[in-house]
Design a protein around this nucleic acid. Structure first.
Length: 171
DNA sequence: CCCTGATTCGC
DNA sequence: GCGAATCAGG
C-alpha cells in the first residue's frame, strides 16, 4: 500500500493527536510502525504537539555523588552539547542528609554501613531510597527487623503449621 | 520483554 | 520516497 493523499492526511492527524507510530500503523493498516515513522520523518513532523512523554532534553544530571569519605575530586563537568532551556535549571543541591529518625532518607549513594537497608519505593525509580535509620538487627533497624524476620508463625495453630511445613520444602 | 521514536541505508 | 533493520531509551 502506498501513501495516498488520504492516508497521509490521516497519518498527519493521528500523529498530531499524539498517537504512537504503532497505533497509527495499526489503524491505517497495511503499514508497519517503521513505515509510519519513516513517513513522519519525511514529512518533517517529527516533533509533536501532545507527546505522551515529555521526553527529557537528553540531559544527564550529574549524579550528586556524595559518598561518605570518598575523595570525590570536585571535577568540573563540561557540557559540550547544547543544553536546552529546560536543562538550564538544575541546581542539584545535594545537601548532606542527616540520618535521623525519618525513614527513607538514605539513597543508594548515601547508605552507610550501619544504616537500615530496608528498601523504600520502587528500586527502578529515581526516588528510591533506603530506610537509613540506625541498624539494629541484621541489616535493618528495629522496626524493619521485626517485619523482615517474622515468617509464618503465630495465628491459627491448625493448618498454619502444615502450611509452613509444606512451604519449607520450597526454600 | 514490552514499548517508544530516531536513524541508517539498500532498494 | 520507501521501510526494514537497527539503535537508544523508558
Amino acid at each position: 500500500m502506498g501513501w495516498t493523499d488520504e492516508r497521509v492526511e490521516s497519518l498527519k492527524k493521528l500523529w498530531q493527536d499524539g498517537l504512537s507510530a504503532s497505533q497509527i500503523a495499526k489503524q491505517l493498516g497495511g503499514v508497519t510502525r517503521n513505515a509510519v515513522i519513516g513517513k513522519v520523518h519525511r514529512l518533517g513532523l517529527s516533533g509533536r504537539a501532545a507527546p505522551s512523554k515529555p521526553a527529557r532534553p537528553v540531559f544527564k544530571a550529574p549524579r550528586p555523588a556524595r559518598p561518605v569519605a570518598a575523595p570525590a575530586a570536585p571535577r568540573r563537568i563540561q557540557e559540550p552539547v547544547v543544553a536546552t532551556a529546560a536543562a538550564a535549571t538544575a541546581p542539584l543541591p545535594a545537601p548532606v542528609r542527616h540520618v535521623d529518625e525519618a525513614p527513607g532518607t538514605a539513597t543508594v549513594l548515601t547508605l552507610g554501613a550501619h544504616m537500615c537497608k530496608w528498601p523504600i519505593g520502587d528500586p527502578s525509580s529515581d526516588d528510591f531510597t533506603f530506610c537509613g535509620r540506625r541498624q539494629d538487627e541484621g541489616p535493618y533497624c528495629m522496626e524493619h527487623a521485626r517485619v523482615a524476620y517474622q515468617p509464618v508463625q503465630t495465628k491459627k495453630r491448625t493448618g498454619a503449621n502444615e502450611l509452613a511445613r509444606s512451604l519449607r520444602r520450597y526454600i
